[in-house]
Design a protein around this nucleic acid. Sequence first.
DNA 1: ATCCGAGATATTGGATCCACTTAAAACATT
DNA 2: AATGTTTTAAGTGGATCCAATATCTCGGAT
Lengths: 243, 243
Amino acid sequence: MSIEGLGKVNSYRTLQSLVYENMRDAILSGRLAPGQRVVAAKIAEEMGVSRMPVRESLRRLETEGLITTVPHKEAVVRRLSAKEMEDIYSVRLVLEGYGGRLAARRITAKEIAKLEELTNQAEELLAQGDYWGVQEANERFHKLFFEASGSEVLCELLRNLWSRCYAYRHLSAAMGKRERIAIEEHREIIRALVDKDGDRVERLVWEHTEKAVEPLLRRLKIEEQREEGYRAQEEGVDHPGHP
Amino acid sequence: MSIEGLGKVNSYRTLQSLVYENMRDAILSGRLAPGQRVVAAKIAEEMGVSRMPVRESLRRLETEGLITTVPHKEAVVRRLSAKEMEDIYSVRLVLEGYGGRLAARRITAKEIAKLEELTNQAEELLAQGDYWGVQEANERFHKLFFEASGSEVLCELLRNLWSRCYAYRHLSAAMGKRERIAIEEHREIIRALVDKDGDRVERLVWEHTEKAVEPLLRRLKIEEQREEGYRAQEEGVDHPGHP
DNA sequence: ATCCGAGATATTGGATCCACTTAAAACATT
DNA sequence: AATGTTTTAAGTGGATCCAATATCTCGGAT
């Protein structure tokens, strides 16, 4: 009936939406890791609800691309191959660039101030060696940035693409190697926004995102190969190809 | 239990997926028109199934942006304002342009032949005055075109954007005014693909889509104003603003 | 020893039931 | 007649039950 610690449940939210958010959060945070099986009954019991709202949530997560289901078999948290990750990032690149172009035309002084604040925050956190904090601040920068585009459709798509790779964000932690430069690039983007120079914003976002994704992809490919190695060892097969 | 005329239902497809496709088709075709209310129980009865698979389908359609639901109230087929339509088209523009750029690098001779065939088909249909047929052929051209990009992510997003405005396609019927030119533009895009000139493909797609959307938007705006006029008349209010 | 098939088990898919929310309609009150 | 209130109807949200299907296990035949 009620989810512990969430107070008055039935006041205005449906159970289904709460379960959905809970599951989504679990996936993004990594509590439900990519490849892990998701059993509706288990989730339902854990949350103290029936299977019904869980099933509806599963459908939503499925159409968002966060889980995959096979009829009568199972639902698993979706795993991304390096190729898929690359595709997602390249589309994000294009869309964020376009968002930047739009933002340059309509961003307000207030929003720019907020972007500057986030950049300063990131800088401070970097000085303290809090790399995770830096990443979080940078994420908020990007989110705010594309929301300034004024296109709800664009935001929706970007949020989706974002959430699909969020569970892999630990792979893109640069641990001091790139953060310095990334923050400088953010400042440059802000300058271009102030100048209302859409072309320049777009180009800068392109370069910026491209550089950010490169190490992530490299690591993902390494992980993939390592895992394939394991599997080969276990199964006694040398190259089973992708499942 | 069984949907009439669909044969062996439980062999490999789930009822839910059949209901989903049915509903989606109804929305795209206009049988369920934008703004129309969708009552789960009614749909269930019509299709001869229980409400369960209908509810799951509704969740999917909702996250795809084809319907909107208000908790405990109702589900309605989503209506697009001119602004939303404009946003969707501008994102489509960007993505299709990018898809073209990718396609230029990897499209095969066979795919190009198929594109040419579709263009010829469109031309024939135009000569016969079958404007609807022309539109359909052109749609298939676009679909095949962006599928040649090789990016599943990109295709998924474009399919979604496509489906969101599909119910409004009658508004973009040019009835002979533009089809001639559109077909010529398709041929030019094909030429650029043959030359593997990604930049040119992207530019051509931009221009092409931009020209196609303009009349649609104009008509949508006119419809919007007319409807507002009706409402003002009915309610005796002069300008109630957007709901 | 290996392969195959018949139960047993786990889990999803679908139907039905009930409770709760919202709106609409009927009614009463001023 | 207009307005506020109660009753009624319609429809969603959630729980539970049953059926269908896939996987697993174990015993038997070759």
